[in-house]
Design a protein around this nucleic acid. Structure first.
Lengths: 153, 153
DNA sequence: ATCACTTACTTGACACGTCATTCAGATCGG
DNA sequence: CCGATCTGAATGACGTGTCAAGTAAGTGAT
């Protein structure tokens, strides 16, 4: 089998694909670095805290949180154990279902989120959102939607 | 400090940002799963093999490869050790510089690449490239370029 | 009530990435 | 030359993610 038998990408496609791959790795890396400089939170910590802060009573069933974040349960379980050890969240058992648990934001978690959020939001704007005009954002959103459909489990 | 003091994202921005985050994690996951079903290669293995196959004599200095791939040297070092143990690549020392090394594709590595490539390329098209029209690809490329500039080290 | 099945979550082993460190071999100033 | 420094690469410790297995509690049929 020679190269010509492979339905390879042409130059345009390859260029677009490789730029995608680079952004996919470097954007979160840059945002993570920025976030780490003004807080002790990772992007994952931040996202977790945001989801909780948006929830009634600042708490959620663990599986509900996992579903919202599109995380595997075991990943979330590991992560919450670490965040809990750092005092950012708190696990509470669930009266209605003896198997289940809630996770709740602690005071410290809320404080960490509020302290970190402004810089992080600024960074998301500076590195990502401001990179596209309004029209381009519309196109980008459309493309992302289609990719998500194709990827959907 | 209350929520209103935080320069949060509006609904449009948040929606776009979260879709981006989802695609950023789920697209590589889906491609990795697909690749894993028809080969024993990860996306990282594949990318490494492609770079080598595109190089003269199918080999490169390790630091050159790291630079091409935008990988940290130690990451590449770890990865090449594993790939080498699986017989996909081969390390050779460099006459001109006693510190340096080359990595070369093995026969098995080339065979694995050629076997995996068609399906992988099809998957990249099906999940990503076909999600955008030609016009949208132009826009997407422009946006990715701008984001890369902003992220650039 | 009991036994099988499902659900909610945890755990442990392992793969990968990062960071700091190490080490040999270049390179360069004196 | 020779010591200081730099460079290419490997290594070890550690954090995080995945997958498979485990535990405990709910559900449901008989």
């Amino acid at each position: 089998m020679t190269d010509s038998d492979i339905p390879w990408l042409d130059e345009q496609e390859m260029h677009l694909w490789r730029r995608w791959l680079r952004v996919e790795t470097e954007l979160p890396a840059a945002l993570g670095r920025a976030l780490g400089q003004t807080s002790d939170l990772s992007m994952q910590d931040f996202e977790t805290l945001v989801r909780l802060s948006e929830s009634p009573e600042h708490r959620l069933r663990i599986s509900a949180l996992a579903e919202q974040m599109h995380w595997e349960r075991s990943r979330l379980s590991h992560h919450l154990r670490r965040m809990s050890a750092r005092g950012l969240v708190d696990k509470q058992d669930c009266k209605e279902d003896g198997r289940g648990s809630f996770v709740a934001l602690t005071e410290a978690g809320m404080a960490a989120l509020e302290q970190a959020a402004p810089d992080h939001v600024r960074a998301v704007r500076a590195l990502f959102l401001d990179g596209a005009t309004e029209d381009e954002k519309v196109v980008l959103g459309r493309v992302l939607d289609r990719v998500l459909e194709r990827v959907a489990d």
